[in-house]
Design a protein around this nucleic acid. Sequence first.
DNA 1: CATGAATGAGGCTTCATTCAT
DNA 2: GATGAATGAAGCCTCATTCAT
Lengths: 197, 197, 197, 197
Amino acid sequence: MIIEAAARVFAQKGFSGTVMAEIADLAGVGKGTIYEYFDSKEELFFSVFEWFSRELGASVTVSVAALGGSASERLMALSSSLMRSWDEIRDMFSLFFEFWAASQSSQMRERFKNAFREAYGEFRGIVSSLIREGMARGEFLPHVDPEAVAAALVGTWDALFLQAWFEDSFDLTATARNFMTVLIQGLQGSGGGRGEP
Amino acid sequence: MIIEAAARVFAQKGFSGTVMAEIADLAGVGKGTIYEYFDSKEELFFSVFEWFSRELGASVTVSVAALGGSASERLMALSSSLMRSWDEIRDMFSLFFEFWAASQSSQMRERFKNAFREAYGEFRGIVSSLIREGMARGEFLPHVDPEAVAAALVGTWDALFLQAWFEDSFDLTATARNFMTVLIQGLQGSGGGRGEP
Amino acid sequence: MIIEAAARVFAQKGFSGTVMAEIADLAGVGKGTIYEYFDSKEELFFSVFEWFSRELGASVTVSVAALGGSASERLMALSSSLMRSWDEIRDMFSLFFEFWAASQSSQMRERFKNAFREAYGEFRGIVSSLIREGMARGEFLPHVDPEAVAAALVGTWDALFLQAWFEDSFDLTATARNFMTVLIQGLQGSGGGRGEP
Amino acid sequence: MIIEAAARVFAQKGFSGTVMAEIADLAGVGKGTIYEYFDSKEELFFSVFEWFSRELGASVTVSVAALGGSASERLMALSSSLMRSWDEIRDMFSLFFEFWAASQSSQMRERFKNAFREAYGEFRGIVSSLIREGMARGEFLPHVDPEAVAAALVGTWDALFLQAWFEDSFDLTATARNFMTVLIQGLQGSGGGRGEP
DNA sequence: CATGAATGAGGCTTCATTCAT
DNA sequence: GATGAATGAAGCCTCATTCAT
């Protein structure tokens, strides 16, 4: 598939460092063939972005659906699951840089921005539901703002990846676990309120 | 100053979207003059990066130094102070995208990565000191890992900016405040432990 | 018919502006099918040229054959008939530009030149016969050079079309009539010599 | 001068047969240099057109200004002068084909058409003035339409060149002289009216 | 020191042509 | 025979960099 080849090259060389010929080579097709399916380099890039978002979204959705236990446990499990996926993501993580950069400088700025907004929104929604659920069960404090915490939390995970990116020795799993413990404690409030008293 | 002009253009057009001529124009110098001071476009870009890091680092250090009160209060104040600076940062925020992207695809990859590691490390250090201080004062729970929380927190702020970037309507201040409340509560543990008992 | 489709597209887009795919579409056949009948784009172009020449040649021959009256009258009638055909020709007129251009730059230069020479020669022959006939009848002055006048006249008609091409408001019919009146007068010499004295 | 080099190459290879590199080579400059002065291949082509028109227009204007004698004589002299210039024009004549073709298929169609209209109009104006002058002097018949004859005559000369283009053996001078004799006779009407009786 | 005209390597893209189905 | 997906050569154009002034 051309898109996957493109993803790989874009991830490695960046958008403008990437040469169409290399994608073609890696995909095992002729240069011209790419243009049968994608109007331009930029269009291809956007398609890679869509494909990547879809992939990632799907895997998150699946992993959340599989979760059980109290809200706290599920939140923690979600975090761990994400962190564990780092090794799979790692190679492709730099794609985010390129996507982000494209959201500013590309001529398709708006399309990228919209797509990002959506993707973040969706993920945030999943997490805020989880929190809201915890609140409904009395597991979490009532005055918490689920949206705010979800937004920040989603960002935190994102940013932990970013740090892992820069520091090979960065201990993603431990850092996330420690942080989540504190955060969940904060959500539960004093005495812990471990779900059912 | 050439660097500032370059920063502005890079922020707006991205690294490869930027044309040396435009920087020269904006800086009010000849194209050739840039090469008197910087060996190449990439070198200039890296210089922009260093300048930008320094600027940012300085402003954070200053704002932390000015902080007073309990560790919780100072943490909250730091967060608010950062969020308040968004409007100043906004225009230049996209530089991060470019820097991040450069950390992968640029030929100066390692220099970028190192600089990032350092910058994050420094900031993380400031925050973890704050937390450690809170622990020392008994304000925060003892079993917390200051490094982990600091790393995550620094990332969270970063990522909140990212979301504000994509969503104009994103309420940075409120989101950060809500989140920090929960997190600080988690750090303080049950009953709150407002500093000295 | 592929040739007619090709003619239409070549006329509209020019030789190199024409894409084989468009011809195929317009002709309602597959791109590959064209190559069953024509070895190359250039070959197809030349075939269009031949087809067009034949068409045009035929229509001129027919219209001349239908002419009656004195040589002057027939000359005038031929001119009018040609001018009247402008609306039919107009859309295809730009093909001439392409053919002419091809006669210089195409790899088939010689074939084009020859064909043009022939076509012009044939047309010139028809007109010079007409003039010679007028001379034989004593209608035209004896010292006229029928070949020269025919060559120029054929060219004049051609060039009037050219001007009509550039100027929508150009009055082909009137211009041609006025000019022909003068020319015929010149052929007849003093007193007019309306055919038989 | 780049324009002259371009003219030469365009004349030889046609617009799309021409490669920018060849122009650059012939002009003795780098490929990029051309783009310092012309935005695109098409713009360069149009500039060649303007340059060529100006050159030609100037030479015609000069040659007309130098003319003396009766209107008939001047008309004949103009014709001869034009025909004599064939050898100089010959090599560049095919540029006309390209220009004409461009007036249909180029994206700058309108600019070309306008320029042609103007150029033809100007030339036509010169010739019609000459005829009008002849009429004023009583040298030419009064009922002649100077505009029509001028338009046709300008076209005739054009078209004679065209035929000379296709037929090396075509005797431009003789053909033009013979034709002009007839035409002038037609303008003078019966008895000749050689200017002053 | 400053400049900006000149450069040419390099990349995206087009499209005539082929050939397996 | 007909097709159209695949191809890759080729060309326009950009732009970082140089260097004579």
